[in-house]
C-alpha cells in the first residue's frame, strides 16, 4: 500500500489507474526497501511523502515515473534526430571545413613565418609597442617549452569561432536594436545561452553530430561566445546620441546611410568591447571543448586530469592564462585605438 492510494480511491480513479501490479523495472528506492527486507514504515503527518511522480506512480500505474519522463525526452531527441541531422548537417558542414582548414593552415606555416606575421598584424592593428612585445614574448615562451603547436591550434579555433560570432552576431544585434519586439524575444535566449552550464549544451550536440567532427565543438564555442557581441551591438546602437540621429534624419539620410555612416561608427567602441568578451569566452569554451575532441591546450589540461599528470595540467593551464592575457591586451589595445579617434 502506498501513501496516496486512498486519495485515488476516494476520487474514484482506481479503474483509470489500472491494476495494482507494477510493470517495468523497479526504482532504486524500491530495490533498497526490498533488499533490506523492511516493510514501509507507518506514515504519520511528520513524514508525508511529497506527491512526486514516483510516489504517485506507486499508487496509480497510469501516472508515469520520473525516469519515464527523462527517457521520453531522450526518445524525443532520438525521434527528431534524423530529420534535424538532415537539415543541420549540410548546413554546418562548412564550419568543419573551416576549422580543419584553418588549423591545418596555422600548423603547417613554419613557426618563424607565423610568429613574424602575427607580430606585424598586431603592430598594424593596435599601434601599441607593448602589445606587440607581449605577443612576441608569449609566442617565444610557448615555442620554447614545446607548447607551440597546441597553442597554435587553440588560436586557430578561436580565430575562426570569433570571426563567425562577429559575422553572425553583429547583424543580429543591429536587427535587435531596430526592433523592440525582436529584442524582447532574443534577450531570454541570450540569457539562457549565457547561464546554461557549458557542459550541458554539449549534450544535444553530441546527439546530433559525431564527436569526431570539428563542427561539434565549433558550434558549442560559437553558441557560448556569440552572446556578448550581440548584446553590445544592440546596446551600442541604442546608446548613440539621439541628437546626432535627429541631425542625420534632418539631413534626409536613408536608413542605410544612417546605419553605415552614423550608427555603426558611433557604436564601434561598444561593439569592440563585445568582441573582446567574445574572444575571452571562446577561449574559455575551447578548453572545455577538448572533451569533445577539440585540439589545442585543452587536450593537455584534460590529460592532466585524466592521468593525474599534475605538471602537464598545470603548465598547460598556465599557457592558457598567458594566452588569455595576450588576447585581452591585444583586443583592448585595438578598442582603445578605436575610442581615441572618436572622443566626444
Amino acid at each position: 500500500m502506498a501513501f496516496y492510494d486512498s486519495i485515488f480511491d476516494s476520487l474514484g480513479l482506481k479503474e483509470w489507474c489500472g491494476a495494482d501490479a507494477k510493470g517495468g523495472p523497479m526504482t532504486m528506492a524500491e530495490l533498497l526497501t526490498r533488499s533490506k527486507g523492511t516493510q514501509a514504515e507507518e506514515t504519520s503527518a511528520w513524514n508525508v511523502p511529497f506527491p512526486s511522480l514516483d510516489e504517485l506512480h506507486a499508487s496509480c500505474n497510469a501516472i508515469p515515473r520520473t525516469r519515464d519522463m527523462t527517457s521520453g525526452v531522450e526518445q524525443f531527441f532520438l525521434d527528431i534526430k534524423s530529420s534535424l541531422q538532415f537539415v543541420l548537417d549540410p548546413l554546418t558542414q562548412p564550419l568543419s571545413w573551416l576549422l580543419d582548414g584553418s588549423i591545418w593552415m596555422f600548423v603547417s606555416i613554419p613557426w618563424w613565418l607565423l610568429i613574424a606575421l602575427t607580430l606585424v598584424a598586431v603592430q598594424f592593428i593596435t599601434r601599441s609597442k607593448s602589445a606587440t612585445l607581449l605577443v612576441a614574448f608569449t609566442w617565444l615562451f610557448m615555442a620554447f617549452i614545446d607548447h607551440y603547436t597546441y597553442a597554435v591550434q587553440t588560436m586557430a579555433i578561436i580565430f575562426v569561432c570569433t570571426g563567425l560570432s562577429v559575422l553572425l552576431g553583429v547583424p543580429v544585434g543591429i536587427a535587435m536594436s531596430k526592433n523592440d519586439r525582436l529584442q524582447k524575444a532574443v534577450i531570454p535566449v541570450l540569457d539562457m545561452l549565457q547561464t546554461l552550464p557549458s557542459f550541458v549544451y554539449l549534450i544535444p550536440l553530441i546527439f546530433l553530430f559525431s564527436v569526431t567532427e570539428s563542427k561539434l565543438y565549433g558550434i558549442a564555442i560559437i553558441l557560448y561566445a556569440i552572446v556578448p557581441v550581440i548584446r553590445l551591438t544592440d546596446l551600442g546602437i541604442r546608446l548613440v546620441d539621439q541628437d546626432i540621429i535627429e541631425a542625420a534624419n534632418a539631413f534626409g539620410m536613408s536608413a542605410r546611410q544612417k546605419l553605415l555612416s552614423v550608427e555603426l561608427p558611433l557604436a564601434l567602441p561598444n561593439i569592440m568591447a563585445g568582441v573582446n568578451q567574445t574572444i575571452m569566452m571562446s577561449l574559455a569554451m575551447v578548453v572545455i571543448a577538448s572533451l569533445v575532441s577539440a585540439p589545442g591546450l585543452g587536450v593537455l589540461v584534460l590529460r592532466g586530469i585524466n592521468n593525474l599528470e599534475l605538471g602537464v595540467g598545470l603548465v598547460s593551464g598556465f599557457c592558457i592564462v598567458i594566452l588569455a592575457i595576450l588576447l585581452d591586451r591585444v583586443s583592448k589595445a585595438t578598442l582603445a585605438r578605436v575610442d581615441v579617434s572618436q572622443q566626444n
Partner: peptide, 20 residues
C-alpha cells in the same frame, strides 16, 4: 527625404556634429 536633403537644413542646440 528629398525635402530634408535639399529644401531645408537645420542647426541644433547641441550642435549634433558627427564626432567621428
Amino acid at each position: 527625404r528629398k525635402l530634408r536633403q535639399q529644401g531645408m537644413s537645420m542647426v541644433f542646440q547641441k550642435f549634433a556634429l558627427l564626432p567621428h
